[in-house]
Amino acid sequence: MKCCSAIQKIVLMASDSKPQRLRQWASFQSSAAKKTRTMTTQSSLKDAFSSYADDLNHLNDKREKVVKASRDITANSKKVIFQVHRISKSNKEEVLEKAHKDLAAVVDQYVARLVKELRGSDFWKLRRAYSPGIQEYVEAATLCRFCKSGTLLNLEEMNASLSSLSDPSHKPLQINILDYILGLADLTGELMRLAIGRISDGELEYAQKICTFVREIHRELTLLVPRMDEPYDMKTKMETMLQSVMKIENACFGVHVRKSEYNPLLGSGDPSYPLMGVAGGIDL
């Protein structure tokens, strides 16, 4: 009986210990699974963060190169604008030919490098980085077109001239309408300076032509800007544009007034030239 009772105790102890071992084993398996899942999650997060950091560094490097290309476009486009301001009656053809050659060099060297740096990326992500250079290029290209033919270089023509720079396997660089309009706003300031210079050289008709052209641009943009999604950059430029229009109008009007009041008192070789309203001159 004692033996049976002892065996029964051993069996009971064994039976009691088996579920406990099973629970311990299940608990161990569960903790191991959780640990494995935690390690896997941490590893995936680490890989994702590393990949994101690499992409961000790559984007920052590309941004720096794009900014450098944009600055080169800006500097060389300004040189084209300065070249155009040398225009006069005697050297118009020569100056415009040199300006168009310089503008073509801007496209072939600096805009082409910008297109190369932007290859394979979303243009809108880096637009703020290259927008100043594109605006300056628009300003120079439209100024050359106006001085050559008296017309406006539109956005479609400008983008068509840049399409050959892009690899056919990638999306071509296209100047967006906002950068084009911002460039046109800056164009009016250069046309104002050009008009003042032409007035000083006696080309009043050319200055009046510039005045009509600038006034038309201002009128069209006044109707367009309120419909734009991002009109903030245009507010100051619209005010500056209006000032340019008024300066050209005032300069042309002043010349007309002075011309109507002008009475040449000296320089006549005719001794009978009426002086101060006295016929026959003055007897000395």
Rank of each mutant, 00 (worst) to 15 (best):
Q135L: 09
T188L: 12
W124N: 14
S121I: 10
I134D: 05
F146K: 02
D186L: 07
E203W: 11
E190M: 01
L165V: 07
I181D: 09
A195V: 11
H170Y: 10
Y180I: 02
A160M: 15
G133E: 02
R127E: 12
D179A: 10
H170N: 03
A129T: 04
R193Y: 14
A141Y: 05
I199C: 11
S121F: 13
T188H: 05
I134T: 11
G183C: 07
I175M: 06
E190C: 01
I199S: 05
I181Y: 15
Y137M: 01
A185L: 15
L162M: 03
G197I: 03
L194I: 03
R145Y: 11
L126T: 11
D179N: 02
W124R: 13
L143Y: 05
A140P: 02
S163C: 14
P168C: 10
E139T: 03
R119G: 01
A185Q: 12
P132K: 03
L153E: 10
S131A: 00
L204T: 12
G133R: 01
C147Q: 07
E190W: 02
L204N: 07
A207L: 01
A185D: 11
S169I: 13
S200A: 10
N154K: 11
D167R: 06
Q135K: 04
G120H: 01
D186Y: 06
E203Q: 09
G150R: 04
R145E: 15
Y137N: 00
D201C: 05
L162V: 05
K148V: 12
G133M: 02
L184H: 05
D201P: 11
Y206W: 14
L182W: 07
Y180F: 13
E136W: 03
D186S: 00
Y130M: 00
T151F: 14
W124H: 15
E156Q: 13
R119S: 09
G133W: 01
S149I: 11
L191H: 03
L162A: 03
C147S: 08
T188I: 13
L152N: 09
R193S: 12
L155S: 09
T188R: 02
Q135W: 08
L178G: 12
L187W: 00
L162K: 07
K125D: 12
E136F: 06
T151D: 15
L173K: 09
M158R: 06
K171A: 15
V138A: 05
G120S: 06
D186A: 05
L118S: 00
L155P: 11
L191I: 04
R127P: 06
S163Q: 15
L143A: 04
S121Q: 02
A207V: 08
G197H: 13
D186P: 07
S121Y: 10
L194A: 04
I175K: 00
P132Q: 07
W124K: 14
S149H: 14
I181R: 09
E156V: 14
I134A: 04
L162P: 13
S166G: 08
G133S: 00
L155R: 11
L184A: 00
T151S: 14
T142A: 09
P172W: 13
K171W: 15
N159Q: 07
S200G: 03
K125S: 10
E157W: 13
E136P: 03
S169Q: 09
G197A: 08
I196Q: 05
L191M: 07
S121K: 04
F146R: 00
Y206P: 15
L182M: 08
D186V: 07
E157Y: 11
G133T: 03
G133Q: 01
S169W: 11
S200R: 10
D167V: 08
V138E: 10
